[in-house]
């Protein structure tokens, strides 16, 4: 009897979650689908964002996430490799780094945004300008480079934690097997451990991308623009981004009511894009897994 009650309750909880998800997705799809057109995803906004498309925001989002991935993956993976494979598990240093990573994951994203503004834009950027451009304003302003660096910092804990878990999941027997054949630690790492852990490491990448693509707060002060008539072509350009575009249209537009249909469609595109990025990464991971299962 108690069993049945519990099963019923947990099933109900699951249904509530599913219903909410269906409601949100259904709502967005229903109100967003009418404005979707080729023009919408290939043109720039016009007439105070009530007409035209959102291509610059799509482009900016993809570019931002791409740059972020390039920055976060090597740093995160190498940190995890150091923590798991080289540092002694009981050292104070490892403990401190692990605590720092855990705390980093708990920091609100707006704080990352302010940190990005203070550190990357004002400190690093201004410093670069002072050193290489004689004080002329080039990098000491919000830019896609600084926004992706800020996002990389935000997603770093995800990558470190998932990579650590992937490395830990490689069986001890396999790690020892390589060493017992006379492999150096570096050879063992490159030829046995990393290939075995690669699908798990990619999972970290997937999670980082999903997280990064949906964040608005960290990029508000560090590079996202309200409206730009051009696409970013240099790392110190500003950019438009889907999440920020949604925020802008919902709160800053001259005519909020008129932008509503576009708002829905933009959210739909943002969801679809995140979903696609995920799908791509999952496909890559599945192919890798298959390759290892077949042993190529």
């Amino acid at each position: 009897m108690k069993d049945k009650l519990f099963i019923g309750l947990s099933a109900l909880a699951m249904l509530v979650i599913l219903a909410m998800l269906a409601l949100i997705l259904g709502n967005i799809f229903w109100f967003g689908k009418d404005r979707l057109s080729w023009e919408f995803i290939s043109a720039s906004p016009r007439v105070g964002m009530t007409e035209g498309g959102i291509f610059p925001a799509i482009f900016g989002t993809v570019a931002l996430v791409f740059l972020m991935t390039i920055a976060v993956m090597p740093a995160g993976v190498m940190t995890a490799i150091y923590l798991e494979e080289y540092a002694r598990a009981d050292s104070k240093m490892v403990h401190i780094v692990q605590q720092a990573v855990a705390n980093l994951a708990g920091v609100p994203s707006i704080v990352f945004g302010l940190f990005g503004l203070g550190f990357f834009v004002n400190f690093v950027g201004r410093g670069v300008d002072g050193l290489f451009f004689g004080g002329e304003l080039n990098y000491g302003q919000p830019a896609i480079l600084w926004a992706s660096a800020t996002l990389a910092l935000l997603t770093l804990p995800v990558v470190i934690v998932t990579t650590s878990e992937a490395l830990r999941a490689v069986p001890r027997e396999i790690k020892e097997g390589g060493l017992a054949l006379g492999a150096t630690r570096l050879q063992n790492l490159w030829r046995i451990i990393i290939p075995s852990a690669l699908p798990g490491i990619l999972t970290g990448g997937i999670l980082a991308v999903s997280r990064g693509a949906g964040e608005v707060a960290p990029i508000m002060f560090t590079g996202a623009a309200y409206f730009l008539p051009y696409l970013p072509t240099s790392p110190n350009d500003q950019f438009m981004e889907l999440g920020y575009h949604v925020y802008v249209m919902a709160t800053q537009s001259p005519d909020v009511e008129a932008t509503k249909p576009i708002l829905y469609s933009t959210v739909l595109v943002l969801l679809a894009l995140t979903f696609l990025l995920n799908l791509l990464a999952i496909y890559l991971r599945a192919r890798l897994r298959k390759r290892f299962a077949e042993g190529r």
Partner: peptide, 21 residues
């Protein structure tokens, strides 16, 4: 080892591993 620990590679690459490294 006690638990057989082939690498997730081909049979050939398993045996060749020691020589390759």
């Amino acid at each position: 080892f006690q638990k057989s620990n082939p690498f997730p590679k081909t049979i050939f690459e398993n045996v060749a591993f020691g020589l390759r490294i």
